[in-house]
Simulated assay, not measured.
Amino acid sequence: MSSNNGEKANEIFKAQALVYRNMYGHLDSMCLKWIIDFGIPNIIHNHGKPITLSELVSTLNIPSAKVESVDLFMRYRAHNGFFDIVRIIDDDNDDGEEEKEKEAFALTTASELLIKGSENPCISPVVELVTDPTLSSSFYHINKWFYDENRTLFEIALGKPVWEFLDKNPTHMSLFNEAMASDSQMVKLALKDHNINMAFQGLESMVDVGGGTGTTAQIISEHFPKLKFVVFDLPHVVKGLKASNNLSFLGGDMFESIPKADAILLKLVLHNWSDDNCIKILKNCKDAIVNVLRDDKKGKIMILDIVVNEEQDEPEIITRVKFLMNISMHVLLHGKVRTKEEWKNIFDEAGLCDYKISPFSGYLSLIEVYP
């Protein structure tokens, strides 16, 4: 085989591997779901140290015929960064023999994010929502979606828009609210950053539009106890939620009007909606802010959302996540994950021309927009 032919063959082999990697990609989410369903991060966390395969299968009460399968799954997840494989001394050696080393699985930062019930952030509910069979099976209807001019993928698969589906299915609504609440825990980490902290300084009142059950608002209001905070969402979402000293809940529709405040917060709201709907929401935010402006301060809209920036983002993780989320929002909700230029366009259309974008968390940015 000539050199040129060899190079061409290698390119074809690599291309085949790329196709296969994407073909089997759904197994990544299924293996991640398996980790959470079996509570493996919690098992290792409660164990207090790296856990051996025999200890893990004993805790899980796995049949002996499936021990090798557990090892296979754990090693694959270790390859992907969810566990570390370490060497430990065998403490159970009671027969007087020389101490032996064994392999064990240790938590990584990624798997620590999946530990339930601890004080640290946990995003397991997000995984449970995205991998829910009823919701995730919608993607099998993508071919139909491309030939349907108006309906979202959820409408095609479930027979109704997602918000209506959630409203009529309390179990899925609870799953959705838990997922949004768990993602909001990352705000606590972001507020440790001085620049992010300063963005909230000097504000006396804030409305969290589409704030759900109030996890983000709770975190921010505890951090700024003098800030009067209102969580504004659909009446059935906030019904029965209890107010605290500086935090209250109010039902309404952001497409009709928004309560007045120094600042309006939109966390992961606008990527759910089309440009036209975002412009309507932003205009209502502007009206709410303009009405409380005084000479000594300047109100603003604070958007926590995704900004696609291929030139600056780490390509294999951050950019890939943003593109995948864009596809998800696009087909499921008619939404959009926007570039800087696309954000600018909707701000201009809403009459909001002064803004700045700052990093917030791994995949989120803080956009401060001024009327």
Score class of each variant (00 low, 15 high):
245 N>I: 00
79 H>Q: 04
220 I>M: 03
17 A>W: 15
156 I>A: 04
353 C>P: 08
308 V>K: 15
268 L>D: 14
71 D>F: 11
354 D>H: 06
368 E>C: 04
38 F>E: 13
210 G>H: 04
132 D>S: 04
226 K>E: 15
224 F>Y: 07
208 D>F: 08
249 F>A: 09
170 P>D: 13
214 G>N: 01
9 A>S: 13
188 K>Q: 13
218 Q>Y: 14
256 E>F: 07
160 K>H: 07
143 N>G: 09
234 L>W: 06
330 H>P: 08
226 K>Y: 15
366 L>C: 07
224 F>P: 06
366 L>S: 03
260 K>Y: 11
330 H>E: 04
137 S>Q: 03
295 D>G: 10
256 E>M: 11
182 S>Q: 04
224 F>I: 02
152 T>W: 02
126 V>I: 08
140 Y>H: 00
370 Y>M: 00
118 S>E: 11
303 I>G: 08
350 A>P: 12
162 V>T: 06
2 S>Q: 12
146 F>C: 08
246 N>S: 08
56 L>N: 02
326 N>T: 09
147 Y>E: 09
42 N>R: 13
295 D>A: 15
259 P>C: 01
82 F>G: 00
320 R>F: 14
276 D>A: 14
146 F>N: 11
129 L>W: 09
300 K>Y: 01
8 K>D: 12
67 V>Q: 11
253 D>C: 02
350 A>L: 05
345 N>I: 01
117 G>N: 02
362 G>E: 10
71 D>T: 14
276 D>F: 03
114 L>R: 02
369 V>D: 00
155 E>W: 12
54 S>E: 09
362 G>W: 01
228 K>V: 07
115 I>K: 01
163 W>N: 14
105 F>C: 00
73 F>G: 02
42 N>K: 13
288 A>N: 00
15 A>G: 15
365 S>I: 01
312 Q>T: 12
